[in-house]
Design a protein around this nucleic acid. Structure first.
Lengths: 170, 170
DNA sequence: CCTATATTGTAAGTATACTGTCAATCTCAA
DNA sequence: TTGAGATTGACAGTATACTTACAATATAGG
């Protein structure tokens, strides 16, 4: 029995591959975000970090990385930049000398409020070319897929766990 | 008339935002690709470049960037790494002294053949958690969205145009 | 022919995103 | 209590991904 011949190597196979489409869509999403938020000098990642710190004041970097599914190393430089721009501040923890607690500054809180309409415009623009029903379908499937694949990523999202150790156990 | 109060700022809003899901899915996709292709020392981007050079031998870097929707600057270092690993070679064009033509080496062609099963396993694994019908729906919608948003990205895909100037016009 | 303009590859600078490693610190169990 | 192991933030190293800028080269118009 002859084995199946290998499929031809074509760009069309690349263009239709999930991995390629995910990369392409991510590029597009970042591009749209940066365009809508041009006035604010804030990247998508920096925005997510600000929201998380706003929601969980006094979080530390390691837990923050779990809450936004971010590598700890990467997050270090993100935090540095946010601090350099005076949007957040770091205070040493009295309980654990290794830890630095993160808080929004007034400037950071104000920025967050102001930028939200631009962020929502960006999010809407990403899906705009689709029909409303298709937008819902796509988001529902993607949310499922990301959730079901959570453990496959190197830095899984740990939204709840992360907070159990924050002195707000419940 | 009082204006609508602003929506509360929550992490759930971030988790459901298209931009966040696209970034997360991209992280997961790269992670799975790297895991399946561990034996080969090739990144997703390097793989796409190899396929494109295989499909269009003698392509130059600028056209390659259009064919895989890649920034020219980024591509420079990708090409360098592929050359350092002896998977491609660059030859000066006799017609245009600015241009360097790209070709797969024997080693690169062999690698490409060998890696394909691993790449296909990776692509399959990304969608595995979904039901087959949902996989199709998701891919169809995503393909549409990427295509319709093509111009929104900084480096739009120009699959066909790019080749018209390659001496294969027609 | 010669000059304004465009293209090509390259480089410098910024920002994710990951792999490791490390010292300081904390925790827990023997 | 002390010592093994874990955690934390920091750092070095690699790889996208983008911006702007630049010199070398090519092209088109006058």
């Amino acid at each position: 029995m002859p084995s199946k011949p290998p499929p031809p190597i074509t760009m069309d196979a690349v263009y239709a591959a999930p991995g390629y489409l995910f990369r392409r869509m991510q590029q597009i999403a970042v591009s749209i975000f940066m365009e809508e938020c041009r006035d604010f000098d804030l990247t998508p990642v920096q925005y997510a970090a600000l929201v998380a710190i706003h929601t969980h004041p006094g979080i530390d970097a390691t837990r923050l990385s779990a809450v936004i599914a971010f590598d700890r190393s990467t997050l270090g430089s993100v935090i540095e930049r946010l601090q350099a721009k005076n949007y957040i501040e770091r205070k040493p923890s009295p309980e654990d000398k290794r830890i630095k607690l993160l808080y929004l500054t007034k400037s950071g809180a104000a920025l967050l409020k102001e930028i939200i309409p631009a962020v929502e415009r960006a999010q809407a623009r990403m899906l705009e070319p689709l029909k409303p029903a298709d937008r819902k379908t796509l988001m529902a499937l993607l949310e499922q897929l990301v959730d079901l694949n959570n453990e496959a990523s190197r830095v899984p999202l740990r939204a709840e766990d992360a907070l159990e150790h924050l002195g707000k156990a419940g």
